[in-house]
Design a protein around this nucleic acid. Sequence first.
DNA 1: CTGAAAGCGCTAACAC
DNA 2: GTGTTAGCGCTTTCAG
Lengths: 335, 335
Amino acid sequence: MKPTIYDVAQAAGVSIATVSKVINATGRISDKTRKHVHSVMEQLKYQPSMVAAALTGKSTYTIGLTLPDLANPFFAEIARSVEDRGHEHGFSVFICNTDNDPDKEVKYLSLLSQKRVDGIISATRIQNDQFLKKLIQQNIPIALITGEMPTLAVDTVMVDDYLGGFQAGNHLVELGHKRIAILVEDMDNMSNRERIRGCKQALCQAGLDVEERLIATGGFSVESGQQAMSQLFKLEDRPSAVFACNDLLAIGAIRAARVAGMQLPSELSVVGFDNTILATLIDPPLTTIAQPIQEIGRRAVDLLVQEIKGEKVLKQRVVLLPELVLRNSSASYSD
Amino acid sequence: MKPTIYDVAQAAGVSIATVSKVINATGRISDKTRKHVHSVMEQLKYQPSMVAAALTGKSTYTIGLTLPDLANPFFAEIARSVEDRGHEHGFSVFICNTDNDPDKEVKYLSLLSQKRVDGIISATRIQNDQFLKKLIQQNIPIALITGEMPTLAVDTVMVDDYLGGFQAGNHLVELGHKRIAILVEDMDNMSNRERIRGCKQALCQAGLDVEERLIATGGFSVESGQQAMSQLFKLEDRPSAVFACNDLLAIGAIRAARVAGMQLPSELSVVGFDNTILATLIDPPLTTIAQPIQEIGRRAVDLLVQEIKGEKVLKQRVVLLPELVLRNSSASYSD
DNA sequence: CTGAAAGCGCTAACAC
DNA sequence: GTGTTAGCGCTTTCAG
């Protein structure tokens, strides 16, 4: 059995209260006993039980992170940054792959609640009122990453999707494109709708009219992007550029173009969104709208931890600005 | 405050023992009281505290997963499969990014121990005796993924690196290559050494001699692969093929070839290792040695859970076999 | 079938 | 400075 505080107390010839005090550096303990107790703990390889401590009212120093799929590089990078920052604050993080399945989300929530996590960061893209409301009801600190809930007062860190979409559209317009397609993951999703709205706005300002036919729905995969794009190529009047709402879709578009025997970027310009590692790896390197992934994770954790520690009452929505990253998948065009 | 078992007992007009029994479906409880208690729990939105339960001797249903870097797609996929399988068994997983830093590893270990995780899966590639020994001393179930420790009796799930290396080398040999380079991440690492040994063996069998000059050390990044490969291109007698010990390095090699103005795969064949999602995304699609990532995570969790539940005493080393996945980055060659 | 009571390992007053 | 003691929320004998 693991040694307990009693074992340490006995071996050190002091009371458990004293041991507890030296563990937590609380109360007043003479230097001598402190050192002595420390050495005994060392000797016994004593590891204070955080679960017992948590039961006493301390927090568990654990947060939950729900996301659709860790195998998706975007979310993996989010997870990495959340874990990093969490660890800096002394928090461990539970990961939960929800696959955007509302049932799984609810189950994870319940589980996290039973494990008494101190807070939850949700990076799911789904609009799940039920999920969130439960959370809020339980009065457990929560922070949203990626996509706000306009009707809920909850800490949120997000990127300005509208601006990102605008930057993408504007970039394409400036390059001289007239027929610009859009590949979207899922219109149920507010972030995506905003990205599209932004993009459309850029086209409008340029006097281009947006044809709904040029907006295709894919998903969060390369395959779906490829398929959607190849459909678009069947139109009599092919688009010369496409804005894809995530890098995966953008890669699919590139692949569809290749399959159709087109040259990139001369015959098709593509702009992605997210700026995951994939954007740099692909050929041609992908022009994309960069989300400040590190910063998103970091800020979300900071917000959450502040709330956990009760240092903050004001909920807030932090909107970070995206940036256009120029690479080689987009080029000027004239016809 | 969250409702406790007492609240439920009181509201239901029974004792806490009874409530406990219906929660855990233990002992004998009349149908009537069971249903009644359930409805009360519902009413109160009661969530049993797993931390209190854990204190009583039950396990925490939590495992820790240490890995170098979640942002690396290979480890992200590992993490995804571990979490999936863990969740199926009812376990939550703590992620720990160690960056292969021995200090961080030791600290995480201590933390996990204090949080009383039921077991640990380590996917770090470093040979850290200290780390593992501590773990074993503490008698906490552990399973290794990715790289065995020959001198330690610990559950391990790994791929046959030697065979993988052989498959890669053999493939290249069969394509007619004579000058085959190797890009390795790090020679301190047993897995990598085995991959190289396997590859060399294939070359030897074909009567080719392996020039040490053609073996270059990179790291776990595209940049390092690119750099290492471009060094190799400076040789008077360029290699016509390269085996890279991971997909990231392979992508670096591809990029270096592009920068050097070479055609792929006609002027350079490249074979990777891992078969991460990247292999399918890159252009040309990467021929690579596939690790059964899903299966590795799954088996490791199964082993660990068995040990946690005390259903197993025999430690074992499971060696899964890699497979050559043919894509378009390798082609036959003759000079 | 159901309940009383003794812990699990630790913290936090409150005494001494 | 240090020790005593009463919980934290739950599980688990052991009676009834």
